[in-house]
Simulated assay, not measured.
Amino acid sequence: MDDYPLLDLFLTMLFFFLWVMWLFLLFRVVMDIFRDGDLSGWGKAGWLIFCIVLPYIGVLVYVIARGRGMGQRDVKQARDAEAAFKDYIRKTAAEDETTTGSGTASGGTGDLARLAELHDSGKLTDEEFAQAKTKLLT
């Protein structure tokens, strides 16, 4: 244990942690380069070569020059994914209703029962359930 003092162990762990953080940032930058629809093919190739040839400087310059856009693209991707998920739920609920019918009970009672089934199965959110229920009751 005397061969490797505590300070050397701490520095080794610090450098390892910084290296892992830099690798994470490098992969983030490379993914962002390919995800950016505003960059041309030559622009993507240029940034990629810059990040490969001069990795530390390239990543640092990319984050300084295009860091704000990285955040905006992340937010846009999250919103698009959420919208696609909600659209999928609506389509699935609509398909489910057309294949099984809207219920044979008297008028709105069958529709309310069907809405409750869709809500309980998770195909409708609380907001969608409340809106549909309001429509049926008015």
Rank of each mutant, 00 (worst) to 15 (best):
D2M: 03
D3H: 11
D3W: 13
P5A: 05
L6R: 13
L7P: 00
L7D: 05
D8S: 13
F10D: 04
M13C: 03
F15M: 07
F16Y: 09
F16W: 09
F17Q: 08
F17D: 10
L18N: 13
M21C: 11
L23R: 14
L23A: 11
F24H: 12
F24K: 11
L25E: 02
V29M: 04
V29P: 02
V30L: 11
V30H: 09
D32Q: 04
S40Y: 05
G41T: 06
W42F: 09
W42T: 10
G43N: 08
A45P: 00
A45E: 06
G46D: 02
W47T: 00
W47D: 00
W47P: 00
L48R: 03
L48G: 04
I49H: 01
F50T: 04
C51W: 00
C51N: 02
C51A: 06
I52M: 10
V53R: 05
V53Q: 00
I57A: 09
G58N: 05
L60F: 06
Y62K: 00
R66W: 05
R68H: 13
R68V: 10
G69A: 12
M70Y: 01
G71V: 08
G71S: 06
G71D: 07
G71Y: 12
Q72Y: 13
D74G: 11
D74S: 08
V75T: 14
Q77A: 15
R79P: 00
A81H: 14
A83R: 15
F85E: 06
F85L: 11
F85C: 03
D87G: 13
Y88W: 13
Y88F: 10
Y88H: 14
I89C: 11
T92C: 07
A94K: 15
A94H: 13
E95P: 05
D96W: 12
D96T: 09
G101E: 00
G103L: 04
A105L: 14
A105F: 14
G107W: 05
G107D: 07
G108F: 12
T109E: 15
G110T: 01
D111C: 10
D111I: 07
D111T: 06
L112A: 09
L112W: 10
R114K: 14
R114S: 02
L115I: 09
A116L: 10
A116R: 14
E117I: 04
E117Q: 10
L118W: 02
H119K: 13
H119Q: 08
D120N: 15
D120E: 15
K123E: 02
K123Q: 07
L124A: 03
T125R: 13
E127L: 10
E128W: 15
E128A: 15
E128N: 10
F129D: 00
A130M: 01
Q131E: 15
A132N: 06
K133C: 01
T134P: 05
L136P: 03
L136Q: 06
T138Y: 08
